[in-house]
Design a binder for these strands. Structure first.
Lengths: 156, 156
DNA sequence: ACGGAAATGAGAACTATTCTTGATATCAAA
DNA sequence: TTTGATATCAAGAATAGTTCTCATTTCCGT
């Protein structure tokens, strides 16, 4: 077996792995991984960046708006998808961090576009320690943190 | 003059300073600092934490809902107030960072409450440097960053 | 005081999102 | 396979936070 043949999981393998994980998450809450839900995940995984609902239904015309909203909610609640509320007209959705890895966002205040970014792990560690310390002082139980840089993207 | 008499600006002085700053910001955009807008600022300054619109109009019954929304928008656009969109039912509003100082938030995902927190300045510096470096790689022009810790507050 | 621009407040309108409803699909057990 | 219980679906109605309209009032410079 050469390094070429299986260097890292290919896109196809990664997608299969994502579907497996989400399937078991759903099953754990007595939900089914139906084709509509699978299509949502396919669209988000293919885009590689957060999408609004109009984006999503435009990308796959088989998706009904009401079902897409409902299924996104189901997937958010089982931890497969993350909802990003920026204050713009539409919320954005992306695969959750267990699937996509921990990351943050560049948010364009002009056009609303969102891009994923990754921080150095040492900075990440410091931030997490600081936040954890502060939270414990307030009796606050942390779940996750979000760090967004707001500004204008290259196009705006 | 004793240390007691003017140790640091008292609450009254601080509020007067805030009003002055906001007044000049508004004047710079040909807007008036009317009593309705002043009342909004008073309510937010007095609360000391982010408030929703229902919170605000409940705190000062003289404030009409439509005017409050409109004036909050005016104040947000002149940089006096910051709007925080969490994805909950209501957006939150607080005095902007030039008036309140740079800070971050604990956000309770159960009840929606938001509390202000301050990070160590060295961590803050690192984060800012990291974000700036990443932004420049994408041709992104930073305006400000937001760092929120999501979880459950002591009451939930 | 006067004229005009800005602000106000009550309610209507807008729209992203959620809910309702009746039909359809799926699974497990017999 | 059949059956029944349950989950899901899709279309449109309903909800609700926020924004808009407009007639009236306030404010500022002259």
């Amino acid at each position: 077996m050469t390094a070429q043949s299986r260097p890292v999981p290919g896109d196809k393998d990664r997608l299969a792995e994502i579907h497996l994980q989400i399937g078991s998450r759903l099953a754990g809450q007595d939900h089914r991984y139906t084709s509509g839900r699978r299509q949502l995940v396919d669209v988000l995984a293919h885009a590689g960046q957060p999408m609004t609902l109009p984006d999503i239904v435009a990308a796959d015309r088989n998706l009904a708006q009401s079902s897409a909203y409902r299924n996104l909610d189901v997937l958010v609640r089982c931890g497969a998808i993350r909802k990003i509320s920026t204050g713009g007209d539409h919320a954005h959705f992306e695969l959750a961090e267990p699937l996509l890895g921990h990351h943050h966002h560049l948010i364009c205040t002009s056009c609303g576009a969102i891009e994923d970014i990754h921080l150095d792990s040492d900075v990440e560690l410091l931030v997490d320690q600081s936040l954890t310390a502060i939270a414990s002082q307030s009796g606050f139980t942390p779940i996750h943190h979000s760090l967004d840089l707001h500004g204008h993207c290259a196009d705006c």
